[in-house]
Design a protein around this nucleic acid. Sequence first.
DNA 1: AATAAAGTTTAGACAAATCTAAATATTTTG
DNA 2: CAAAATATTTAGATTTGTCTAAACTTTATT
Lengths: 219, 219
Amino acid sequence: MNLTIAEENYIKSIFKLQEGTETVSTNAIAYELDTKPASVTDMAKKLKEKKLIDYEKYHGITLTAEGKKIALQIIRRHRLWECFLVDKLSFSWEEVHELAEELEHVRSEKLTTRLSDFLGNPTTDPHGDPIPDAQGKMNKIRSLQPLDKAAAKRLEVAAVNDQSTALLEFLNAKGIRLGTQIEVIERYEFDNSVEIKIKNQPAFTISEQVSKNILVRPL
Amino acid sequence: MNLTIAEENYIKSIFKLQEGTETVSTNAIAYELDTKPASVTDMAKKLKEKKLIDYEKYHGITLTAEGKKIALQIIRRHRLWECFLVDKLSFSWEEVHELAEELEHVRSEKLTTRLSDFLGNPTTDPHGDPIPDAQGKMNKIRSLQPLDKAAAKRLEVAAVNDQSTALLEFLNAKGIRLGTQIEVIERYEFDNSVEIKIKNQPAFTISEQVSKNILVRPL
DNA sequence: AATAAAGTTTAGACAAATCTAAATATTTTG
DNA sequence: CAAAATATTTAGATTTGTCTAAACTTTATT
């Protein structure tokens, strides 16, 4: 299956949006890829032709088994490159997403396998996201909960839900990284903000928008 | 300067062909890039518009200073990735050219700098070609001569002139790699073939086509 | 259930990169 | 130096991925 970079990006977006919901809307994909719904419709026809998605006019899109397989390969490459950039080239976690978006399109199984070996076959990327193995199997460590919904008081940061530079820089500034231990001091109902404390630091409050995107596990 | 991958490939080819000769022909570029002369003409207009080449209809192409600068950046990235693939991921020298052709198009100065540092700032790639530094300066170790023209009897292999898998696999099979020491036993005039000997091995003969592409330095 | 709102698709256009075939320019050669 | 050979360019078409504007479907609302 020979895919263009654009096709790969569509497959990846559909996979991402499909988590949870069954079928993905034209609009959602357009928003995710920063393009227009009409363009998505055009591409949907092509991907259907290639049997990578199921698609009926006006009724949304889902990946076929083959489509999912390809999505997982792309995600695997993306996350391995992120590990490489952080572990070997000392990039910080907010810098690597965009570079990995480009590197992920180099399709070579041999390269992917060797890169993975070189990195010690990591199972999570610098944002805490699981890395699919060569067969496309991925640990769904989604025993994780977003901080805004977690019940326990003592928590550990395990992943982030959003790769945007803005969020990651904010977390850097606050001293929040993967593995950081957090104590929930107070939850404020009126705006769903949370007051939290990190060891040896004064407590501070974060908005719902932020806490939604921090995935934690109870300690 | 925002270039497409196609534009980068044209720049790189022109740079390569420009060595020695002053102006590069439409035909030569078309052959190098495995495309048609008409396509080269079209692209020449675009690159001229962007001031990366000097071009007058029917009178060939040369890179401007800016064009050369960009070419050297691309070559730098290409050769650094080749080093990475061989030194860190254990690829062999005949496998890396095609992968590097893809990786070289990831344009990030920070990535390039860090990759170079990670590799110990190498100055030659796995085929013996010099790697331009961040300023575009490149050791012209072209005190090197092709084996078919070298005068001395005892020689060391310093580089190869052709990245094709076919040649490199041939050299692998014959035990010829960078640093291999060669003794010239005999030169045959009628077909310009050379009989050579590598330490602890029986002598063998190689064709002009091969010896042209092996760059050596006297010992 | 009819209508308004929201979402999606079609039609037609455009830019990038390519191609073929025909036209034109340059170079080589008898 | 004119004709032939070679090289280059133009004209017109194609593919991929995109867009806008208009048309159409589905869904939500009153």
